[in-house]
Amino acid sequence: MTPYLLVAPPVLLLAALVIYPLVYNVVLSLRNYRTGEFVGLHNFARAFDDPLFFASLRATGVYVSWALATEILLGLALALLVHRTIRSGWARTLIYVLFFIPMVTPPVVAGVIARLMYSPNYGVINVALAKLGLIDTEILWLSEPGTAMFAVLSVDVWQWMPFVFLVCFAGLQSVPMDTVEAARVDGAGGWRLFRHVELPYLRSLLMLVVVFRFTDTFRVFDHVQVLTGGGPGASTEFLSLYLYRIAFKFFNLSYAAALSLFVLAVASVAFAVLGRYLGKEVGE
């Protein structure tokens, strides 16, 4: 009896603060927000004729795939590099701290920092590129769709490649020494050692990283809001930013609620994947 009595208050709280709002969202999505009348699936049907929604979906797709690919490849490569070449304990601690700090910086501040780096009149990136002789006219990073996408992506990679690195580095250190030694004696070096000995140990951690990074890039909001606000045009208006605009600029909460159920469905799939592949690590 007691265990159920103890978990009752948290369960009730979550019912009130999570389940109720989600149900409320479904109700919202079936209405016309202004008049309050029931409109059935109209808000869902509307999404199919909304070019801005599809533009936002495409931008999110671009963002998620570039961020995931870059962060995972760089993070993994860096973990291997440090694992193979840096032996001294204090150097490793220093590297740890170096990559730890950006990861725990609030995303809004990361956006502010990027603003200080990319902006046309105060940014240093243009100055550095000009000094190196790579450009001779200023790049207006935040005013062109392509470079603006690059800028918001660069912030994500800057902040979260370290997370991939730290997870992979910890994973590499958990590979048993004698397994590595045995492989070396058998003549496995470099790539083969990684492919056949270390990668199998990392596989489930990499899946975990993919799910976490997918979840967070798919919902990205904070630093984009500060850096580009979704612009120029709608080129960096990712799903969270688009829903924000519909709900809180146009005050069409019903349409936003309908779209948010789509976002929820995608996030649920990510969570289901996590449960399936990582039963051991997180299911227990």
Partner: peptide, 26 residues
């Protein structure tokens, strides 16, 4: 035990925009 812990864990995957829309109205 597993169900409860996973339910709590699922909150980590709940996008804030999905919650903030109804929450704002409430």
């Amino acid at each position: 035990r597993r169900g409860l812990l996973n339910w709590i864990l699922s909150l980590r995957f709940l996008p804030p925009i999905v919650v903030v829309i109804p929450f704002f109205d409430i």
